[in-house]
Write a protein that binds this DNA or RNA. Structure first.
Lengths: 223, 223
DNA sequence: TAGATTGTTAATCGATTAACAATC
DNA sequence: TAGATTGTTAATCGATTAACAATC
């Protein structure tokens, strides 16, 4: 998602982490927190938290800090989490299953209303109380159930065509987990999760700090 | 992972995306590619690709472009993907299962040598040919099998303690999928996947472009 | 050779950090 | 009041983009 131009993706990402930590603090019974303590718990500098929040309003009290319940409510409105958005999952592998049973994994309660798969063995069964439909019903159900976000957990080979069809049927956002770069028109929001890049950066880090006999004899390095 | 200081995490992430696209190009039978075409396919500006690669060496030929097979090999060495690193997965939910059956989802062939879960029902069964062990065996197996990376797919409540134990047992990197901020010593590489932030940014984008009756009456906006 | 494309430098842009006056 | 902590400005830092000479 490269459009927007107002508030950057990194800011929104951090906001969702503050949100997660604030809900945990709330659960633990705290009422108020300073940017300093929140930063220590969530792993950010206090100034960054204040700056991020200040982009949207004045939520704190000088000398006191932030009221946790209020801030949770406000971030929820900022991120638009209060919206009731219908979501479909396309592709019932283990990842699709993991996302379908969301509440523990994803700290956002999304409104899953359809699940699709090509496999006739799976069609008709249900997942978390929702019937799995054939991908041939994609367009019909997207329209019928007013689905706005498609979560793509299909194989990479099918991702682009499934995305095209979902967009043509009226979807407005795509959350792509298939390991492939999919293309969408400018007015469609696209977030691609790239599950392997995290692992790649671990490999990279480990190769640089490797000790002992397995030492990599280094590539030419810049500078 | 905030340490390092040489090449930034965003660069490494992009490198892993170039890698993925290059392998696809190779599969499609291409021999050579320019930064321009690669950029068009993977969604980056050609100059960015050249710049990223130039940090590690000179891999292209002026006037011609990059040899695909060579570049795949070189990026693989840069990222350290040629290392044989033993990996454990801790927590057998659907996400753990998805990652255990890696090859399609993750474009990196990691060397999974142990899987842990607390559930006695699961212990003893196998997943992708690997026996699930009780978490009580964590330290013993990490040492015995020389495991360097722990993938945490346990519930959030257990993540920190499991991380502490894995680190004490000698692990060097953690790939965390539990939705909680875990703390590790400076010499341990940590990559936390935050699965909900992508969804949050979709909600944010949709709330800003909402049309029709559901229009959000805006929060105060910066600037 | 002429056209294409790299590697790299310079210019721009944006994000993070430091610092502090305002104020609860 | 004194101490704490915000919101915000200014300084720093880093990343992206544009442009081009070198050269295949």
């Amino acid at each position: 998602m490269k459009r927007d131009g107002e508030v950057s993706r990194v800011t929104i990402d951090r906001l969702s982490l503050y949100f997660r930590e604030l809900r945990e603090l709330y659960r633990e019974g705290f009422d108020v927190i300073s940017s300093d303590s929140l930063g220590r718990r969530a792993g950010f500098l206090p100034g960054q938290i204040r700056k991020d929040l200040a982009k949207f309003g004045e939520f704190g009290k000088k000398g006191l800090g932030y009221n946790i319940a209020d801030l949770i409510r406000n971030i929820s409105i900022i991120l638009g989490l209060h919206q009731r958005i219908n979501v479909a999952i396309i592709g019932v592998g283990n990842l699709g299953r993991a996302l379908a049973g969301n509440s523990k994994l994803i700290c956002i309660n999304f409104n899953l209303v359809a699940i699709f798969d090509n496999d006739q063995e799976k069609v008709g069964k249900s997942l978390n109380g929702i019937r799995i439909s054939g991908v041939d019903c994609l367009e019909a159900l997207i329209k019928e159930r007013n689905i706005q976000i498609a979560v793509i957990t299909s194989p990479a080979t099918l991702a682009q065509s499934v995305a095209n069809r979902a967009i043509a049927a009226g979807i407005r956002g795509i959350w792509n987990f298939a390991p492939v770069a999919i293309k969408v028109p400018d007015n469609i929001a696209l977030v691609s999760e790239d599950l392997s890049s995290g692992l790649a950066s671990l490999y990279y880090y480990l190769s640089k700090t490797e000790i002992g006999p397995t030492r990599i004899n280094g590539l030419p390095r810049a500078k």
